[in-house]
Amino acid sequence: MGRLAGKVAIITGAARGQGASEAELFVKEGAKVVITDMLEDEVKQVADTLNAQFGDVALGFKQNVAEETEWQETISKTIAKFGKVDVLVNNAGITGITPKKPEDYALSEYEKVMAVNATSNFLGIKYVVPEMKRIGGGSIINISSLAGIVGMGGFSGYSASKGATRLLTKGAAVSLGADHIRVNSVHPGFIETPMISDYTDNADIKKGIEAKIPLGYMGKPEDVAYAVVFLASDEARFVDGAELIIDGAQSQNV
């Protein structure tokens, strides 16, 4: 049996990149998945592909994670389809704007990044917890960023949102421990996904980034997905309130 056999997971931001990789690996490990994204056609295609390969294991649809009512709908659709929720992966996120100094941010730009990257995680936790309590526990995994640990020049709004996710995780872990609901955060460094294609598609920029990573290369989506599977599994039953950095030791390279 797979490491996630019998579990049902919601994974946001799963149309491509890390989210799609997480969905595929979850299914391979025995889980059923509800995957959402603003890219409606793409996320449905990911679900269709998984169903064609593994049977009736996936449901995909559009969700704006910053909207409260859409979280309520996502939980309702998940229960209607699969009967429960064991795992929530708050994976959806945006970098926001092109690099600029804090004084050049428009308030609307800052608020959008905070809504998608941080408020959405709060909403996901708020609405999934009652269902997890109903079945006696669960695992919530918030995808933060290396930028939630150290500063990221030019992206102060993104750093703020990911830092908020980091501490939301810790507060929720303390609050929900007695309910056997574990809450952990994952902090990827540079992972080759469409989100950072402006960097990875430029050979000179990519080479410069990789020079700062002791392992000498950027990560792949599956490097994050394997860690998320561990945190979702019963193997991590005593891992709670933790922050897992996946960056090839970049953050240690001073």
Rank of each mutant, 00 (worst) to 15 (best):
E103H: 13
K101H: 12
E73T: 14
L146K: 15
W71N: 00
P99G: 04
I97N: 15
A147K: 10
V150R: 15
G138N: 06
E70V: 08
G157K: 06
T78Q: 05
D86V: 01
S108V: 11
A147Y: 10
F122H: 06
I79W: 03
E68Q: 06
G138E: 07
N117G: 11
G138C: 05
E68M: 02
V129H: 00
G83C: 10
N121A: 14
D104E: 15
S120N: 03
T69N: 15
Q72E: 12
I75G: 00
I141R: 08
G124W: 04
Y105K: 03
T69K: 14
A115L: 10
I140F: 09
K126M: 03
E73R: 08
A115I: 08
N142K: 12
S120V: 04
A106H: 12
E103I: 10
T119C: 05
R134A: 12
I125G: 00
I125V: 12
V150K: 15
E109Q: 13
M114R: 13
S145Y: 13
A80F: 03
D86A: 04
I140H: 03
V65S: 04
V129I: 07
V85K: 00
L146W: 10
V150P: 06
P130C: 01
G137D: 13
E67P: 07
P102R: 06
M132E: 05
K126D: 05
N121I: 11
E109P: 03
K126E: 04
A106R: 13
S76W: 00
G153L: 06
I143N: 14
V85I: 13
G93V: 11
K100V: 05
I135K: 09
E103Q: 14
G83E: 11
N142A: 09
T119F: 03
A118Q: 15
G153R: 11
I97W: 06
K81R: 11
E131H: 07
I75T: 01
N121S: 13
F82N: 02
V150T: 14
G138W: 03
T119Q: 11
N90Y: 03
K84A: 03
Y110T: 11
V116L: 09
V65Q: 05
S144K: 13
G138V: 05
K112M: 14
T95Y: 12
G136Q: 05
I79K: 08
I140A: 01
D86G: 00
Y105Q: 05
Y105R: 01
I135L: 12
S108N: 13
G96I: 06
E73P: 00
G151K: 11
F155C: 08
A147M: 10
M132T: 08
T98Q: 14
S120T: 04
K133P: 00
K101N: 13
S144R: 13
K77L: 09
N121C: 14
E73F: 00
K133Y: 08
V116S: 06
V87F: 05
I149W: 05
K81N: 01
G83H: 12
L107P: 01
L123V: 03
I135T: 14
N117L: 08
V85Q: 00
L123S: 00
R134D: 06
S76K: 12
G96D: 07
I75C: 02
N117Y: 09
G153Q: 11
G157E: 15
V87L: 02
S139N: 12
E109D: 14
V150L: 14
L107Y: 12
M114E: 12
K100G: 08
K133R: 15
V89D: 06
K112G: 09
P130A: 01
K84E: 03
I75Y: 04
T69F: 07
G124N: 02
